[in-house]
Nucleic acid binder design. Structure first.
Lengths: 262, 262
DNA sequence: AAGTGGTCTAGACCACGAT
DNA sequence: TCGTGGTCTAGACCACTTG
C-alpha cells in the first residue's frame, strides 16, 4: 500500500500515492482499488489457479495490512466482474470455465423451446498460419505472427447449429493440435484454461445477420442464401488483452440468442 | 423493519422475522434487502419521480431506523440494477430514460464505423385493437384486452435501419395517439415515462436472423429475402411485470448489435 | 467447535458540488 | 462552508460448511 494504511494518522503530504515519475493522470485511487489490483495481479500471475480458493478475507486483510471491510469491497467488485466466486461458509474461489453448472459461460444460444441441451462438438480443421491482416489487427499482433486457426461445429440432435472459426495467437497456444481438441471433454475455454493457462475473462460481440454462402450452407445443412446470425467475438484476458477472435455462424431456426438489458 | 433494528440487543426468538402465516419459503431476509424493497416501493409508488433525487442516505437511515451503512448497501444494489444513479456531492437520483447522455438506453445497435449517431424516427402506424393470442401471452393480458400497436422506423442518413412493431397494454396507455408520438422529442421510453408513468426497468431480448419478406424489404429499402436481424424485446417494469413487446428488424449491413459478456 | 463469508453498526475522514 | 456520497476502520453477531 503506497497509501498510508492506518487512517488515524493522516498523511503529511496529501498526494503521497503515485510512483514519483512518469505517471501523471491517476495520482490517486482508493485503498480497496489498490487491494483489488493486487488480488488481480495474484490471479494473473497464477498465484491461485482457476477453481482454487483464495485466502480468506481475514488472511488477505492481514497480508495487506488493511481492514477486512476493505478487502471485502475489493473482492465484491471482483466477484461482480465474475473473476471470483463467493461461497458462504467455504471461501472465495477463482472463477473457471469448467464448472459443472453453466457449461458454456459465453454462449448465449438457447433452443426455441425446452431447456438448454448439451451440444456435440466436431472439429473440422486445425492449422497454423501467418495471421491475415484483419486478425493481426483484432488480436493486436505484429504482422507475420503465427496464429492457430480452428473450425468446428456444434450440433444438437444430429443437426449442426453453430459453425465457429477461431483464431488464437500462436505464441500462447504452442502445443495445440487436432488430437488434443478431439480427445478433450468439456468446453474449449476450459481446455485453454487448464492446458495453456489462458483465461478468458470478458468478451465483446458484434452481431449481424448475413446470408449463408454455398460452403457454409452445406456445413450447416441450410439452403444457399439462408439467413444466419453472425457473431464475432473478441475474448479478452487480464488487462483487456485480446487472446481469441471467433467468428460464429448460428442457425437460428430452432434457436435464438438471448440477451438481458438493464 | 420486522427484524430487530438494534443489533446490540439480540432477539429472544431467533426466527422473529416472518409474517406468521402463508409464507413458507423465504422466512428471512437481510435488513438491507428489506430497506431495498421499501425504497423500491417508493419508486414504484411514484414517491420520487424519474430524474429527481431521493432523500440522502442519512435521511433514509433515520426514517427506517437503521444505520447509514445498511441504507448504503440497499442503494448500492439498486444502483447496480440501474434503478438509481449516484452522483457524488449531489445525491442519489431516480434513473430515467431521458438523460442527455445515452439517448437510447436499450438500443445496442452501433454503426460499423464511427461514433453512434442520432437517428431519425418516423411513425408509420398507430392503432388500437384486441390483442392477438401471442401478444396476450407475452404481455400477460387477458384475452380480449385492448393493445396499442405502433409501427415505426429509425433512419440514419436518410436510410431506414430499424423497423419496429410495438405492442403496449391499452389499459396503461390511454391517451396515446399518432400526434403525441410525432410531436414528442426524445426516446419513446422517455415519453412513456413522463406521459404515462410507465417505467421500463429491464428487458429481455431474443435475437434471430430472418429473411426480409416483400413488405418489410420495401420499408427498409433492402432486397426481397435479404437477411435481417430480428430482435424481439420484452420490456418489464417494477415487479417484472411485462409492459411492452417490441419486434424489431435491423438492417445490419452498416450496423451491428453490440454485446458484452462476462 | 472452528472457520468461512454475510450482515449490521458507529464513527471518522475524504472528495465533490453548490453556496 | 455545508451537505452529499465515497472510503476506511473495528468490532459484533449471524448463517453456512466441514470436521
Amino acid at each position: 500500500m503506497s497509501q498510508t494504511a492506518s487512517q488515524s494518522v493522516p498523511p503529511s503530504s496529501p498526494s503521497s500515492t503515485p510512483s514519483a515519475s512518469a505517471e501523471v493522470a491517476p495520482a490517486f485511487s482508493p485503498l480497496y482499488q489498490q487491494i483489488k489490483a493486487l488480488i488481480m495481479r495474484g490471479l494473473q500471475g497464477g498465484e491461485w489457479k482457476p477453481g482454487e480458493a483464495i485466502p480468506s478475507e481475514l488472511d488477505l486483510a492481514a497480508r495487506f495490512k488493511v481492514s477486512q471491510g476493505t478487502v471485502r469491497k475489493a473482492i465484491d467488485e471482483l466477484a461482480a466482474e465474475n473473476l471470483l466466486v463467493r461461497r458462504q461458509g467455504k471461501g472465495t474461489f477463482v472463477a473457471t470455465h469448467n464448472e459443472q453448472k453453466i457449461q458454456y459461460r459465453f454462449l448465449r444460444l438457447q433452443p426455441e423451446e425446452g431447456a438448454p441441451q448439451p451440444m456435440q462438438r466436431e472439429f473440422l480443421d486445425c492449422r497454423r498460419l501467418r495471421a491475415p491482416a484483419d486478425i493481426v489487427r483484432s488480436l493486436d499482433l505484429r504482422s507475420g505472427d503465427m496464429v492457430v486457426q480452428l473450425r468446428r461445429t456444434l450440433s444438437q440432435a444430429g443437426r449442426p447449429v453453430v459453425l465457429d472459426d477461431i483464431w488464437l495467437p500462436g505464441s500462447l497456444f504452442k502445443g495445440l493440435t487436432a488430437e488434443r481438441l478431439t480427445e478433450y471433454r468439456g468446453p474449449l475455454y476450459s481446455l485453454f484454461e487448464s492446458e495453456f493457462g489462458v483465461r478468458m475473462i470478458r468478451a465483446e460481440e458484434k452481431i449481424r445477420a448475413i446470408a449463408a454462402d454455398r460452403s457454409v450452407a452445406a456445413l450447416l445443412g441450410v439452403a444457399d442464401g439462408a439467413p444466419l446470425l453472425s457473431v464475432e467475438r473478441l475474448s479478452l484476458t487480464y488487462g483487456d488483452r485480446p487472446v481469441e477472435l471467433r467468428r460464429g455462424l448460428y442457425n437460428t431456426t430452432q434457436h435464438h440468442y438471448r440477451n438481458e438489458l438493464s
